[in-house]
Design a protein around this nucleic acid. Structure first.
Length: 195
DNA sequence: TGAATGATGCGCT
DNA sequence: GCGCATCATTCAT
């Protein structure tokens, strides 16, 4: 059987985070959830890099919560924010070097009916246009923390999509580190987050 | 159309 | 207790 798409290997994540950030736009995130296959094209990410980045969860050292950031690249890092929303991250850079990419927005691919079920009364372009909404529509919670992104459950696929215009801007929703332009998105997507 | 606010839980200064 | 890598709703303009 011909394999149309290529699962992205760990070496992809084992690089400087800002490089991975630009390369990850246009890639397809695939998630096998309870016999259903969900996928989305990544159109917006933010980089959180190292203990010296005041907005990175690793800023105050390693704790039980942020431990995945310090682990091997190519794993997931999920956390609860504001008591009700989850945020999904891809861990980058070598073990012991805490860094990650927050998935802020995606364009729905397979399983869009399931996403609509998880987030009722939404247009397709509003299902994944924000980190909290992305997780809600995908059904991601703490069970998806620390998963191997080279496993068969959840992984990135290269569909060889060209992303014409990548824009870098400041990160959103943080108090410190707003001078850094570590948010990257696809200007031509209608699914990037608001504001 | 934009600003203000409430929901809600967990880890930490 | 406080402060969050958020979102939906309400209220003002």
């Amino acid at each position: 059987m011909l394999k149309k798409h290529k699962k992205i290997p760990r070496s992809f994540y084992d690089r400087p985070t800002l490089e991975v950030a630009r390369d990850v736009l246009g890639k397809e995130l695939v998630f096998h959830s309870k016999a259903r296959k969900l996928s989305a094209k990544i159109v917006e990410v933010e980089a959180y890099i190292g203990e010296r980045d005041p907005a990175c969860h690793a800023h105050r050292g390693k704790t039980k919560r942020n431990a995945p950031l310090f682990g091997k690249p190519g794993f997931s890092y999920v956390y609860l924010i504001y008591g009700m929303y989850f945020c999904f991250n891809l861990v980058t850079e070598e073990e012991g070097s805490p860094a990650a990419l927050l998935i802020r927005a995606g364009h729905p691919g397979q399983g869009i009916e399931t996403m609509h079920g998880n987030s009722p009364n939404k247009k397709a372009s509003q299902l994944l246009n924000g980190p909290g909404k992305f997780c809600r529509s995908f059904g991601i919670d703490m069970k998806q923390n620390c998963l191997d992104l080279t496993s068969d459950t959840i992984y990135l696929e290269d569909r060889f999509v060209e992303v014409e215009e990548i824009v870098a801007s400041t990160r959103i929703g943080i108090r410190e580190g707003r001078d850094l332009r570590w948010r990257f998105f696809d200007r031509n997507s209608d699914s990037v987050s608001q504001k």
